[in-house]
């Protein structure tokens, strides 16, 4: 599919260049004038960057359900500012800056609240997946296989964009297998500990994503189901998900939901 921005007049062209230098960067480097020349377009999965949802916030200071952990930006849920749809660049940028400020202040306050200082606390390592396998550790580059397995279930449009209950369930079975395998074997040693942990987090995230998608048997906002194309007024709520070895979901009522009109 090809595109050309041929309806922008001279003033709009100049304004667009000033407002979105990032957009024109690619065209300038490829030697394409997007206002006069056709360019190929495609869909690309940006994960949660242009999505909604994220780590659940429990307070105005961006606190989470984990004491001392504060979430900001794309990692934190943006449902609070834009509901079931992405906010786009402006909302998301404003959210990144403001939530980062609030979360940072709260984290500093939390660190200061420890008598004797946060640095001299006794800490206990608790991370499991990717760090402390329950069985015989696999190869040090096992994270590559894990990442490829997640990508195989979340990148194809027919699985993640054209969502259907059957496909979601099949992907979830594959991801569950990957999770249980990595729990037993994924270990990368000190050098690539972060990459192994990231790979484990991708699997956990994908399982939360598809479990929540299966729990929403309707189409609402960015959550679309081919097998449930209509919006169901009975599901006007958020879905909270979590869990590692066993993933769970539960509906969370909206505190600001408009009253039902008879």
């Amino acid at each position: 599919m090809y595109c050309r921005l041929d309806r922008a007049d001279a003033a709009a062209r100049a304004a667009m260049r000033l407002a979105q230098p990032n957009f024109f960067l690619t065209f300038d480097r490829l030697g394409i004038d997007p206002f006069t020349q056709r360019f190929a377009i495609t869909l690309i999965a940006e994960g949660t960057v242009r999505g909604t949802g994220g780590i659940r916030l429990t307070g105005d200071d961006c606190a989470t359900t984990v004491p001392g952990l504060y979430a900001a930006g794309d990692a934190a849920t943006r449902e609070l500012i834009c509901g079931g749809f992405t906010g786009g660049g402006s909302h998301n940028a404003a959210w990144a800056i403001s939530s980062g400020g609030w979360a940072g202040q709260a984290a500093a306050r939390h660190a200061r609240s420890h008598s004797g200082g946060a640095r001299i606390r006794r800490t206990v390592p608790v991370g499991g997946a990717g760090l402390r396998p329950t069985g015989t550790p696999g190869p040090a580059d096992g994270f590559r296989e894990v990442v490829a397995a997640v990508q195989g279930e979340v990148l194809p449009y027919r699985k993640n964009y054209l969502r259907h209950g059957d496909g979601l369930a099949a992907s979830l079975r594959a991801l569950d297998d990957t999770w249980h395998r990595l729990r037993a074997t994924l270990y990368a040693g000190d050098g690539d500990a972060v990459r192994a942990r990231q790979a484990a987090a991708m699997v956990a995230h994908a399982r939360w994503m598809y479990t929540a998608a299966l729990a929403r048997t309707e189409t609402r906002g960015m959550a679309k189901r081919l097998d449930f194309p209509a919006q169901d007024p009975g599901q006007h709520h958020r879905i909270v998900t979590g869990g590692l070895d066993r993933v769970w979901t539960r509906p969370e009522p909206l505190t600001t939901a408009p009253r039902e009109v008879a």
Binding site: A12, A15, M16, L18, A19, Q20, P21, F23, G88, G89, S90
Partner: peptide, 25 residues
Amino acid sequence: PGALRAVGPRLPAPDGRPPAPPITS
């Protein structure tokens, strides 16, 4: 900085007319 030169959303006019839609993403 580009942020200072960017064309952003305009505030509503004093007479209450709605502003032109911003060029954004």
